[in-house]
Simulated scan of single mutants.
Amino acid sequence: MNQLSVAIAGMTLVLAACKTAGSVPARDIPTAMNQAATALLQERLLHSTSIAVVYRGEEFILHRGELETGKSNPPDDATLYEIGSVSKTFAGLLLANAVLEGKATLDDPIQKYLPSAYPNLQSNGEPVRLRHLLTHTSGLPGMLPLQVNEVLKDFTEHATPAKLNAAYAGYGQQQFWQDLHAVSIQGPLGKDYAYSSAGTELVAHTLERIYGAPYESLLAEFLSREAGMRDTWLRLSAQDISRLAPGYHSDNPVITTPMPLLPWGAAGNLKATMPEMLKYLRLQLSAHPAVAESHKSLVRFEEDFRIGYFWNIGQNSQLGTHYVHHGGVPRAQSYAFIVPKYQLGVFIITNQSGDATAKAMEGALAHIFDVVESMQRR
């Protein structure tokens, strides 16, 4: 499934209702979550999932299945998951905060923040700007180094995780800057959608230049201060590695390796527990000024598809205006949905990653959305 398509679109059960237990949501939402998990785990290659829901101030977590088939090891609230490209929305949120603080503007040329001259980062005399990075309209390649883009064309091949590990072994910011000189921008800026994790990495660097601190520490400070999130990580300590969920790539029955570290990590390296993702959903449903800024539509591709600060903005009769992002690494896939119409936030993840995983999660989520919609009509 390509990125534009994704954007546009006998096991252990642990369920926790974190607030009022006797209300209608506490009766209906857990049932819908259980239905969603059941539907997802009927898929041949999927055997574990966790779901977090915030609905009208109430919070729920569900864990189902086994992280490893036959091991009776269900995920729990301490399990750390690789949330993949949902990480991008965190970088967008920090840049939205910087814009509100007057430290950057969306029309700033990215060259303003780079360590040396990059005359190649322009098209027909117009420079690549911050807004182009946020909306995947910069013309930058999907990944750096460039050979990774070829590797990902055969994503389901069993050798793909090992090839990714080899490409990123020793690949740091210095190599990224060297490779960036070889990039050629094609086409008009701000118009054509071309998903770029390389662009997200540049946003992380921009934040470092703005605040004079590493992106990792900027993120940790912001999340702790604004959302009480203290168990979300770009890199894991030795003591936390054991909490990282094992996962499976494509139809390979052998556990695969984690996503290798990117130069900054903003494009897809975050790991978080489900209680942490509940806090993130709650923040995204709040009136926080940086959240409101990050939800602004910056470019429209279709009547029902726009992009804000990395958030894909959808519009349909069931959910109204909603914000969604898919995350995928070689051994996990996830979705985050923010639905202001219903004061609803949903995060779902499974520790398997293949071509059909995203569609399976979308089908599972329909159970939750249908129940919430029906509750509004009562």
Score class of each variant (00 low, 15 high):
residue 208 E to D: 12
residue 283 L to I: 12
residue 200 T to V: 15
residue 210 I to D: 02
residue 190 G to V: 12
residue 244 L to E: 08
residue 207 L to R: 11
residue 314 G to D: 05
residue 230 R to K: 15
residue 266 A to F: 03
residue 200 T to I: 14
residue 315 Q to I: 04
residue 214 P to R: 11
residue 306 R to N: 08
residue 216 E to C: 09
residue 250 S to D: 12
residue 201 E to Q: 13
residue 193 Y to T: 11
residue 200 T to P: 04
residue 217 S to K: 14
residue 282 R to S: 15
residue 259 M to K: 05
residue 307 I to P: 00
residue 246 P to S: 15
residue 270 L to E: 00
residue 300 R to K: 10
residue 246 P to L: 14
residue 318 Q to I: 11
residue 227 A to C: 12
residue 206 T to S: 12
residue 224 S to Q: 14
residue 319 L to N: 01
residue 218 L to C: 06
residue 295 H to R: 13
residue 193 Y to Q: 09
residue 305 F to N: 01
residue 202 L to D: 02
residue 323 Y to C: 08
residue 300 R to Q: 11
residue 253 P to K: 09
residue 210 I to K: 04
residue 299 V to C: 04
residue 230 R to W: 00
residue 192 D to M: 13
residue 233 W to I: 00
residue 259 M to R: 03
residue 271 K to S: 03
residue 256 T to S: 14
residue 207 L to I: 13
residue 263 P to S: 13
residue 231 D to Q: 14
residue 311 W to A: 01
residue 229 M to W: 01
residue 320 G to Q: 10
residue 232 T to G: 01
residue 293 E to A: 09
residue 252 N to Y: 09
residue 272 A to N: 01
residue 222 F to H: 12
residue 282 R to I: 10
residue 291 V to I: 14
residue 273 T to H: 04
residue 281 L to H: 11
residue 193 Y to S: 05
residue 238 A to L: 14
residue 274 M to L: 15
residue 212 G to K: 11
residue 292 A to Y: 00
residue 190 G to H: 09
residue 214 P to F: 03
residue 219 L to M: 14
residue 299 V to M: 06
residue 208 E to A: 12
residue 199 G to I: 06
residue 322 H to Y: 15
residue 212 G to F: 08
residue 240 D to M: 01
residue 294 S to Q: 03
residue 232 T to V: 14
residue 208 E to F: 07
residue 231 D to C: 04
residue 238 A to H: 09
residue 272 A to G: 06
residue 208 E to L: 13
residue 313 I to N: 03
residue 268 G to K: 02
residue 222 F to V: 08
residue 272 A to T: 05
residue 252 N to W: 06
residue 312 N to E: 12
residue 316 N to Y: 08
residue 280 Y to E: 05
residue 199 G to V: 09
residue 315 Q to T: 08
residue 206 T to W: 02
residue 216 E to Y: 03
residue 218 L to W: 01
residue 324 V to T: 15
residue 201 E to F: 06
residue 196 S to Q: 03
residue 291 V to F: 05
residue 317 S to C: 02
residue 224 S to F: 05
residue 215 Y to P: 00
residue 254 V to R: 10
residue 212 G to S: 11
residue 211 Y to V: 08
residue 268 G to S: 13
residue 282 R to W: 09
residue 303 E to K: 08
residue 309 Y to Q: 02
residue 213 A to G: 05
residue 271 K to R: 15
residue 221 E to A: 15
residue 199 G to N: 08
residue 324 V to D: 02
residue 192 D to I: 14
residue 314 G to C: 06
residue 305 F to P: 01
residue 301 F to S: 04
residue 266 A to W: 01
residue 316 N to I: 08
residue 210 I to A: 07
residue 288 H to N: 14
residue 199 G to P: 02
residue 283 L to T: 07
residue 302 E to A: 10
residue 228 G to F: 11
residue 244 L to S: 05
residue 285 L to I: 12
residue 214 P to M: 11
residue 324 V to C: 14
residue 203 V to L: 15
residue 191 K to R: 12
residue 251 D to V: 07
residue 302 E to I: 06
residue 243 R to I: 09
residue 295 H to F: 13
residue 313 I to W: 04
residue 248 Y to Q: 08
residue 294 S to Y: 02
residue 264 W to L: 06
residue 227 A to I: 07
residue 294 S to N: 06
residue 285 L to A: 09
residue 305 F to K: 02
residue 217 S to Y: 04
residue 283 L to G: 03
residue 294 S to G: 05
residue 305 F to C: 06
residue 315 Q to K: 10
residue 227 A to N: 09
residue 211 Y to D: 10
residue 210 I to R: 06
residue 293 E to M: 12
residue 273 T to P: 04
residue 225 R to T: 12
